[in-house]
Amino acid sequence: MKRKTLVILLLISFNICYSQRLLTSWSQQNIENYTKEMYDEAQKLSSSQLLEKNLKDQYWSEVFLTLNASVNHHTKDIDYQKSLAQQITNSSETKLKGTSRLIIWDRISSGDILFEGKGLVFENDLFLVAGRANQILQSLTKKNFGFVTINSSKKELEDLKGKWLDYLNNKSVEEYKPIELGNSKIPEISSLSAFKALIISVQPNSKKDQLTKS
């Protein structure tokens, strides 16, 4: 049974890799509050239930499962994708729990995530409904029209939503082209937001000491 569970987890780990990168190492075993039973339940959810779930997720494990179930079952569901696009103007924020090995540089700088030196890097701010919706859309379509960050303005979110809706209505939309960091030794930590977060993370922090010790 354990071997079967491990195989399932390894397989689904390859289904969500878009606009995210690994820094040193990461596996689903690093996700707190995550079980195979939770995975099985998430796979049964309808598109409308996943849309509602995306609004209410409180833990990183819940966000991960919403993303995973979406990719596993809704890559061709245009209605679902259009509904996700509507959520991109929803700037509601959740202070996600259980964020071990989750890397969102701005959230490390703000103190919402403790940086452990390795993990899964996301460009979208998964603390925001808009960021989670954008991440799901990027993973479903393999398209990138821009990222939702902690500093995204209302106008920027409106523009991003418009690009997604245009694309989903078969209109031509120019994709976002991230800055290439070809000379960087470690591209994952080369952005200004990453540099700022790293400076903050090396400061003395008793919570981080306890976390890394554990």
Rank of each mutant, 00 (worst) to 15 (best):
P187A: 12
I104Q: 09
D57R: 07
I16F: 12
Q29S: 15
K154C: 01
I189S: 02
E32F: 05
P187C: 05
K155L: 13
K154V: 05
T94E: 11
E93G: 01
Y39D: 11
I8K: 15
E158C: 00
L140D: 11
G146M: 09
K208H: 00
R3A: 12
V63M: 08
S172T: 15
N151H: 13
G131C: 04
E93R: 14
L9H: 05
I113L: 09
D166H: 06
E188M: 01
N124L: 08
A42C: 08
G162I: 04
N144L: 15
Y34R: 10
V129Q: 04
E37D: 14
E37L: 14
H74G: 01
Q210C: 08
N72F: 08
V202L: 08
K82H: 07
M1G: 12
P204D: 10
K2A: 11
L50C: 01
V7M: 00
V173P: 05
N144R: 00
S201T: 10
L128M: 13
S48E: 15
Q138P: 02
S92V: 03
T75A: 13
K56D: 05
S100M: 12
S201E: 09
L96A: 02
A130H: 00
N151Q: 11
N169F: 08
L192R: 10
I179E: 15
K208V: 03
K118I: 07
L102A: 05
S83V: 00
T212S: 12
E188H: 07
V148Y: 06
L55W: 02
S92E: 11
S25D: 15
Y18W: 08
G146F: 01
I186S: 06
N169I: 05
S184R: 04
S190Q: 04
L137E: 04
D77W: 00
L9E: 05
S47R: 11
N15F: 12
P187G: 08
S172Q: 14
E32I: 10
Q49R: 11
N170H: 13
H73C: 02
A130E: 10
Q138M: 14
L96K: 05
L160R: 01
R132A: 04
E158G: 07
K196F: 06
L181D: 12
T89C: 09
K36E: 14
S109F: 06
K2N: 15
V7H: 08
K171T: 00
L50V: 07
I136S: 02
V7G: 00
Q43F: 02
V173I: 07
S110H: 07
F147H: 11
E37N: 10
K76E: 15
T35K: 12
D112Y: 06
V173A: 08
E188G: 01
V173G: 05
T149W: 08
E62T: 11
P178F: 05
Q86S: 11
L160S: 02
N151F: 12
V121K: 07
R21K: 12
T149C: 02
K2W: 10
L211T: 05
E188N: 10
R132K: 14
Y80Q: 03
S48M: 06
S139R: 11
